[in-house]
Write a protein that binds this DNA or RNA. Structure first.
Lengths: 187, 187
DNA sequence: ATATTTGTAGAGTGACTAGTCAATTTTATG
DNA sequence: CATAAAATTGACTAGTCACTCTACAAATAT
C-alpha cells in the first residue's frame, strides 16, 4: 500500500475518533508511518486532505454502485439493488460512513465545490427522474425523493449498527425497510 | 440577558459557523461581550460548554413539546402534533438544529452521559410504546420506529430548508410528509 | 457596617499545531 | 551509469489555544 493511501487510511481512523480539528496532522503522519512533510507533499493543506478523503470515500461507494447496476431489471428492482448495495457498503465500511456523516454535518461541507456535490447524486437523481417519468413514483420533487431515500437509509443504518441482529435478521430488516420506503415513494 | 446566556448564544453561533475546535474559547467570550475568565467561571472546560449547550437546546425543544401535548387526541393526532411541532421548532431554530446535527455526528457525542441521551427520547418512546400496545403501529422494535421517525423528520427538514417554498406549500409538505411516515409505521 | 461569597476581568503561560524548508534518498530516464 | 525528477524526512517556526491566576467589584448575608 502506498504512502498516500496510508495517509488517507490513518486520517479516516483518527478523524472519526477525534474529529477534524481534534486530529493533528502530525498524528496522522505518525499513524500512517510517514513524516509530516510527506503528508504536506501530497496534500497542500489539512483542509485539502479532509476534502480529498471525502471525495475518495464517495468515489469508492459510487464505484460499488456502478458495478451493481446491470440494467435490465424493473425500476423497483433497480432501486432495491441500489438501496441494498448502499446499505451493505455502509455497514461494512462503518468508519467511512461515520466520516461522511461528520463531514456532511460540519462547516467543512462548504469546502466542497458545488459541482462535486451534484456529481455524487447524479446517478441516483437520474433513476429518480426515470421513476417519475414512468409514473412509478409519486409526482414529488426529485430532491425530496432523494432526501427521503437517503435519510431513510441513514436511519435504518443507525438502528442496525446500534443493535446486534443475526445475519438473517439483518437481511430481513434491510429487505423490509426497503419495502417501507418503496411504499412511501411509489404510486 | 445575563452573561451565561450570552455565552451560550455566542457559542451556538460560532460553533455552527466554524465547528467545535474551529472556535476558540476567546472568540466565544469576545462575541458574548465577556472576558475569557468569565466563560471559564461558568464552564469548567470547553467540553463542558459544548455539552451544556446541547443539553440546553434539547431542553428547550422538549419544553416546546410538552406544551403541545394536551392529551385527549387519538394516537395519530398526538403523533401529528409531535411531528409538526418538532418540524416547526427545527425550522424556526435553524442554528440549534444544525448544532444538534453536528454534535450528534461528532465524537463529542461520547461526552454525553448515556442517561442524558435516554432522557431526551423518553417522551417519544412512551408514545411509541403506546402505539404498539394499541396495535396502532406495526409490531416493530420501538427504537426502529423512533429512528425512522427521526430520520424522516431530518430528511424533510433538510429538503425544506434547502428549497424556497411559500408558507402554504411548506405547510402542505409538512402535512403530507407526516402522512407518509404515518403510513410507513402504522398498521 | 462588616464579612463572605459570587461575578468579572484580562494579561499571562505552557503546550500544541499547521505548515515550511533544506537536506537526503529513491525512482525514472536517456 | 549519470542525471534529473520525485518522494521523503524531521527539525523548526510563528502563531494559536485552553485554561490559570490574581486583582478587584458587586451582591448578599450576618
Amino acid at each position: 500500500m502506498n504512502k498516500q493511501q496510508e495517509i488517507l487510511k490513518a486520517a479516516l481512523k483518527l478523524f472519526v475518533a477525534y474529529g477534524f480539528h481534534g486530529t493533528a496532522t502530525g498524528k496522522i503522519a505518525q499513524e500512517a508511518g510517514v513524516a509530516t512533510g510527506t503528508l504536506f507533499h501530497y496534500y497542500k493543506t489539512k483542509d485539502d486532505l479532509i476534502v480529498a478523503l471525502y471525495v475518495d470515500i464517495k468515489t469508492r461507494l459510487t464505484a460499488c454502485w456502478q458495478i451493481g447496476t446491470a440494467g435490465n431489471e424493473s425500476i423497483k428492482d433497480q432501486f432495491r439493488q441500489f438501496y441494498i448495495a448502499g446499505m451493505d457498503w455502509s455497514l461494512e465500511n462503518n468508519l467511512e460512513f461515520k466520516f461522511t456523516k461528520q463531514f456532511l454535518n460540519s462547516p467543512y461541507l462548504l469546502l466542497l465545490a458545488p459541482e462535486e456535490i451534484q456529481k455524487q447524486s447524479r446517478l441516483i437523481l437520474n433513476m429518480i427522474k426515470d421513476g417519475i417519468l414512468t409514473k412509478t413514483f409519486k409526482p414529488l420533487p426529485e430532491d425530496l425523493i432523494n432526501t427521503l431515500l437517503t435519510s431513510h437509509l441513514y436511519g435504518v443504518h443507525d438502528y442496525i449498527s446500534n443493535s446486534k441482529l443475526s445475519d438473517s435478521e439483518r437481511k430481513l430488516l434491510i429487505d423490509d425497510s426497503f419495502e417501507m420506503i418503496w411504499k412511501m415513494i411509489s404510486l
